[in-house]
C-alpha cells in the first residue's frame, strides 16, 4: 500500500509525544531510603542540587539519625524529593533547614549545596 510521505513526520511527532506522555507510567525513584519511624505526613520538595544518583545519596545521608523521618525518595531527573515523616517529631521547616544548611568542605570552608525551590 502506497503511503504519503507526510505520514513520516506525523508518525515521528506522535511517537515522540506519546513517549513524553507515557513518562508518568514509570515512577521508580533514583534512591529510596527507609528509616525507623512511622510516617503520617508527606512532603514533596523540588531541590536544586539533587541531579544524579551521587548527589541524591549525599542528600539522603544528611538526614541520617534525624528522628521523625520515615523515608526519603529522590527523583534526580526531576530534582524532586519526597519525604515521609512524623510531624509530631519533625516539622517541614526543620526538614528544609537540614537540606539548606551549609556543608563543610575539605578546605575548611562551608557552602550551601542544596536549595529547596518549592515544597508542598
Amino acid at each position: 500500500m502506497r503511503i504519503p510521505t507526510i505520514i513520516l513526520p506525523l508518525l515521528v511527532a506522535a511517537t515522540m509525544f506519546g513517549g513524553y506522555a507515557l513518562r508518568g507510567a514509570f515512577t521508580q525513584p533514583t534512591t529510596n531510603l527507609v528509616f525507623e519511624a512511622s510516617p503520617s505526613a508527606t512532603m514533596t520538595c523540588t531541590v536544586k542540587g539533587v541531579k544524579c544518583k551521587g548527589t541524591a545519596n549525599f542528600f539522603t545521608q544528611l538526614y541520617n539519625g534525624t528522628s521523625g523521618i520515615a523515608s526519603i525518595k529522590t527523583f534526580a531527573a526531576e530534582h524532586k524529593v519526597v519525604f515521609d515523616f512524623d510531624p509530631a517529631l519533625i516539622s517541614k521547616e526543620r526538614i528544609k533547614e537540614i537540606m539548606e544548611a551549609p556543608i563543610p568542605l575539605r578546605d575548611g570552608t562551608s557552602r550551601q549545596i542544596f536549595f529547596c525551590e518549592s515544597m508542598d
Binding site: T15, G19, F26, T30, K53, A77
Partner: peptide, 25 residues
C-alpha cells in the same frame, strides 16, 4: 528498581516511543 545516575522516567518512556516508531517506520 531504581534509575541510574541522572536517568529518569522520561528516558524510558522516550525509548518506548522510539521503539514503537521503529516498528512502524
Amino acid at each position: 528498581g531504581e534509575f541510574s545516575c541522572t536517568l529518569g522516567p522520561l528516558n524510558l518512556s522516550m525509548l518506548i516511543g522510539v521503539l514503537a516508531l521503529a516498528l512502524l517506520a
